[in-house]
Amino acid sequence: MARQLALATSECPVARALEAIGDRWSMLIIRDAFDDIRRFSDFQKSLGLARNILASRLKALVELGIFDLRPASDGSAYQEYVLTERGRSVFPIVVSLRQWGEQHLFEPGETHSVLLDNEHHEPVVSLQVRSRHGKLLAPQDCHRQRVTR
């Protein structure tokens, strides 16, 4: 527990983000939400996740402001988990994980999914880190600096 508190209060944004949404189930729930899954039962079918674990992760994601819980859009008695602006801002993280996995975790000829844009039905261009001036940056081109918000 002390380690979790240390991560949640760390000065490192990476540590805080991982503590908040970095476990595999939370990321896969968010991934499924980008594929328009909104109902508890649909998340469970997609992920094959035990109900108690799914309920716990969804509750935490609602508390973090990643999802809003709303009445079902079809007027039924169900509720839906809808991504908030904060939740939608996770999209580049999911895309970068996907692209890294596509590039490094599949053998040649092995079947996998790719992300296509809806307008042209072409693969999404790989994300890149660039300076404010448009220069492509590598790790050695960057440094960390402590700031106060």
Rank of each mutant, 00 (worst) to 15 (best):
S113N: 15
H143T: 07
A20D: 08
L47C: 08
Q128E: 13
H121S: 14
L49Y: 08
E85Q: 06
R132E: 14
V125E: 15
K45Q: 12
A72V: 02
T111M: 15
Q140M: 08
A55E: 08
F43W: 07
H104M: 08
L18M: 06
R31C: 07
V114E: 12
A72Y: 03
G22A: 01
G87T: 00
Q79V: 06
V14T: 07
I37Q: 09
P123E: 06
V147L: 08
L69S: 07
T84E: 00
I21M: 05
D74K: 05
Y78V: 05
R24Q: 15
P71R: 11
F67W: 02
G87C: 00
S41P: 11
M1C: 08
R51W: 15
A6S: 10
A20W: 03
F91E: 02
L97G: 06
S96I: 05
G101P: 14
R146N: 09
R57N: 09
R88T: 02
L61I: 02
A15G: 06
C12R: 12
H121V: 15
V129E: 11
L54R: 04
L5K: 09
G65E: 04
R39Q: 10
C142I: 00
E110C: 07
L136W: 12
S10W: 03
E19F: 10
A15K: 03
L64V: 06
F67R: 00
V62H: 04
H133A: 12
V114L: 14
T111C: 14
R57E: 06
F91K: 06
G75D: 01
